[in-house]
Structures are given as structure tokens and as C-alpha cells.
Write a protein that binds this DNA or RNA. Sequence first.
DNA 1: TTTTCTGGTGAGCTATTGCTCATGTCGCGG
DNA 2: CCGCGACATGAGCAATAGCTCACCAGAAAA
Lengths: 316, 316
Amino acid sequence: MAAENDKSRLDDAARAGWLYFIAGHTQDEIAKMLQVSRASAQRLVSLCLAERLITFRLEHPIAACMELAARLKQRFDLVHCEVVPADPAAPQAVAGIAERCANLLDSTLRSETPVIVALGTGRAVRAAVERVTPIERPNHQIVSLVGNISADGSASFYDTVGRLADRTGARHYPMPLPFLMSSEDERNKMVRIEPIAKVKAVAARADLRLVGIGQMDQKAQVHIDGFVTRDELFEMMRLGAIGEITGWAYDAKGRLLKAGTNKRLTSIPPEVPAKTTTIGAAVGAAKVPAIAAALNGGLINGLITDEATARAILER
Amino acid sequence: MAAENDKSRLDDAARAGWLYFIAGHTQDEIAKMLQVSRASAQRLVSLCLAERLITFRLEHPIAACMELAARLKQRFDLVHCEVVPADPAAPQAVAGIAERCANLLDSTLRSETPVIVALGTGRAVRAAVERVTPIERPNHQIVSLVGNISADGSASFYDTVGRLADRTGARHYPMPLPFLMSSEDERNKMVRIEPIAKVKAVAARADLRLVGIGQMDQKAQVHIDGFVTRDELFEMMRLGAIGEITGWAYDAKGRLLKAGTNKRLTSIPPEVPAKTTTIGAAVGAAKVPAIAAALNGGLINGLITDEATARAILER
DNA sequence: TTTTCTGGTGAGCTATTGCTCATGTCGCGG
DNA sequence: CCGCGACATGAGCAATAGCTCACCAGAAAA
């Protein structure tokens, strides 16, 4: 019953959205057509937006962004690069790049032949997954590059892989491990056990890796999310860490560190150099050094970012 | 200079549209960001819409429409069928189906391998062509199924084929003939001359035919547009004509008539049964018998219509 | 050089939209 | 059967968007 109701409500929302955005009617007219109050029509339209029943696609390649993308692509020898217009009011806003990441995932997942998609960390990646158009692709595989058990061992954090699998019906491989083990030995033991080895094997064959890039400073996401302690963070910074991909800290030249938390990480390290298509997704002035290092070190061979960040990277 | 200006203006329009629709800012905020007055920001947003720099895509298959489409597809054994929500305020409005037709053309034309698209008559087809996303495909071919010289011999009517070719850079084959010749003999002579034979040959290999469907009554488009006289129209109606496709009149069972204006038509007749993908595009209560006949007679094997029309067709 | 014309601009008004709040309705458990 | 919580609804208001108008700048024509 509730589902029935929901369905017809979404249906109306879609209809309202259609009449509003495509047919160009006012909400008043739509209200009359659908026999509801104007307020309800407004709610339907905004529901349509909220549920992403309708999406906006920018057809026009904004020249400035295209040019930045082309320069980044050439300079760092990337297989894929997208630059979206910056949003001066919210320089950290992830919406723009999430949209493009979702688009990339969409087109990758649309393939009829089975593909393997590997997902890393990051707000952009999470937001992107939410925006993927549902499509039935049971033969695809979605694999996590990072452990999905948080530091305190109890809660599992936001389950990106599961969400994407929901939307595609694909098989998925979360990584049932804590992010950090207590010692190097223990890490080595854990990564050898059967289910984990399986995940690693699938990840190694991924057609697309989509990863966030974190900066290693006081505001490092890995610390904010509670995956590493303040002391661990400071130690890595002392060792030269400037950025992090799936938790793996690297220095200003994009070389993975061989010490500190990197010895106890369970997540799958970036390939050096990146062989499979590995797209980094990140925006913000604070991340510029981290992104530039990842590009220089060949930790990623694709980038989705915004105009301001792209400019900053190129001007270094 | 003008081009430069236009370009940067469209660029700004795209940027404004992006900030408005995707980032969700108000026009006031956008005005501040782009350093223009709010009025200009509003103009940029509406320009963005007018130029179709941004498009809306409805992700949610509206259940009712989907169901109607599925039923039509099964009942008449169609290769393609789309039903868009009806617009109660304008039952004849062609915007909705034009959007879908444009989409169909878009996806057909997006192909890298050369395709041939054949276009018939009708407001929906015309409007669809206007909405096609420009894309550079010089190896495609666009061919007209109907003569583009109007009855009085002077003016050429709306040049659908040319417009579509403009947007794709494709080769195009208009048909440099009057719609009707003065006698059967003359028609037979004309259709055998070299350039026309060439057009017919290309049309025969079309991958997609997109045709309008006209009803044969007092409001027949072929008459309103001045292609056939009132007397000719009435004669065809007396002979049982109920609809027409590219001018070819057919009866209630979808059989092409072998008399009257059909003997003097220069346009390429519908195949019976339709072998290549032939999509009919039409809406409106008045067209229901004509559409139903075309479906029953197999003159078309695809249909794009609206909800109200779809319902009426199924309820006959 | 002056005139005319096209097209862009900001001011300001009105229609449209988004949102809040008080109220109503439905399903569920007591 | 009644009360309770969760929403959905419509009224009404403030914010936002769309539009008209008078004006201006630069290009083309005289």
C-alpha cells in the first residue's frame, strides 16, 4: 500500500516535473491539470528534483573548462579529464564533480558486456553513487578498494559499494575489514585470508577505479572520519605525506610512503603507475598539492575537478 | 568579432545555466558571481534555455505512459514506441513528441558508423529537427521522402532535411520536385530522372524513417498547406482515404489507395509492410483513425504519440 | 561625420515560486 | 473506540524570476 502510494506519488512528481521543465507550464497550471493545489504542485516539482527523476545536462562545453581539461590531459598524460565550472560561492561543493562522476559511472555501467568498477573513498565518490541512474546490469561487479569497518570496529561507514550495487543489481564486493590493523603483521595476515584475497583479485581486474583524493593536513578527511588518530596523522605528515588515496599516504612527488600507517592499511594501494583507468575526483584549494602530487606520481591517470582547482594545479 | 562575442556570450549563458540548474543558485547570486546585473543573469539563464545549452532529461518512466507504450508496442508489433504525458491544455501540442523524436534522432545520429535518416512531413517532424543536438557527422545521410516544392511551384516549404543536415554536417538529399505532378504520366517520367532516382535509392537504404501522419478530413494538413486542392481532398475522401503518410493516402485498413492524387504523387510511398524502422509521429484526437489505420496496415512499425492519443488508439 | 539601427542594459513592476505554519487525515497501537 | 504520531494539505507571505520600458553603445549606412 505504502509502496503503491509512493509509486503513484513519484509518478505524479515525474509528470509534474515534465510539465514544468519540458512543457514549460507554471505550477499553477500544473496544479489545475493534476487536480491538486498549487502548493502540492510545487511539492511535486521539488520532489521530482530531490528524487532526481529529472536531470539537467549541460550540452555546451564551456570553453574555459574544456581548455583546462585539455591542458591537464596533455600535461599529465591522462586518459580522461573533466573540468566543471567552479562555484565561487561554495568552492568545496562536490555537486558539480559528483554529477560528472555519476555520468562517467552511468556510461561505464551502461555497457552490456560485464565490467568491474572499483570505488575508493571521498565525498565526491559517495555523492556520485547517489546520482547514478538505476540500470539493471546483474553481470557487472562493484568492488571496494577500502575496508568498510570504521576505526571503533563497530559501525560500518557509508556503504558506497552497496549503494551502487543496489542501483544496478550487480554483484558487489565490500571489503569486510577495518581500515587500519593494529600492526603490520596482523595486516599481512588479514589480507591473505580467502575472502579478502578474492576482493583483491576482483579489484585487480577492474575496468574503472573511481577514487577520492584527500589532503594530509589538519583537516584531512581520514582523520575527521576517525580512521586515523591525530598522532598518526601528524606522524605521516612528518614523514612527508601530502595526500592520500584510499588511505595510502604519498609524498609531494606522488611516491607511496613505506612507513607509518601505510604499513597497517588494509585497503588496496594505488597501482604505480596506474595501469587501469583510475579517475581521481577532488576539488578545493586545500587539495591542490595532493592532487598535483598524485598526478605527478602517476597514482591516477584521470581527473575530475572544477575550474578553480584545475587552474591552481596548472599554475604551480 | 561578432562570433567571438557570441561565443563568449553563450559561454556565459552556459555558465549561468550551470550555476542555476545544477549548482542551484539564485539569479541574484549568479549576477554577483558573473559581475552583471540580475536582469542580465536572468537573460543568460533564459538564453541558455532558448539555445538548448542545457537539456532536461526525465529519468522516471512515467508509469502510465510506459504502460500505454508497452501495450501499443505489443498490439501492433512495433519496434519502437514512446508515449509522452498528454498536455491537457494543448491536446494538439507537438512539443512533447517533438522532444522524443529529437531524442530518437539524436541517438541515431550519434552513431559513428554512417547512417541514413529519411524524413517525411508533419509539424512534429519539423519541430523535432529543430531540437536535434548539433553533432558533427559528415558521413551520415539525410534524405527527404517528399518533394520540397510547393503546389504553386515557386516557394519551397520548410526544409526539414536541410535543417537537419545543418546540424550534423551530413550530406543531404532534398527532393527537388513538386508534391503533385499534373498527370500520372508526368509523375512516372519525373521519378525516373537521374537525381530523383538517386534520392529514391538512398531513401530505400534508410536506417530510420521519421514520418508524420495526417488525417484526411476537412482539416487535412496536406490541404491546409496547399498541396492538394479541396476537390482533390474530397475525391480522396470519397475513395475511402482516412489518413496520409508523406502524402500517400490510405484507407481505414491502412491500404494505399491506387487512385486519385496517389497516382500523381512524387513522394516516396510507405513500404508495405514497413521493413526499415519507420516511426510515425502524431498526436490529437482527430488523427486517431489515421494512426490506427497506419498501424493496422503496417505502414509504420514505430510510433511516437502522447498519452491521450495512445489511449484513444487502444480503446478503439 | 552624422544618422540610424541593432542589440544589450538596468530599473522597477508583477507574476510565479518556495516556504512556514496551522490544520486535517490516515494508519496503528492501546 | 479512541488517541497518537506521521505526513500530507492549503493559506498566506516573503523571496525570486520574468518581463517591459526607456536608454545607451557600437556598428553599419548615409
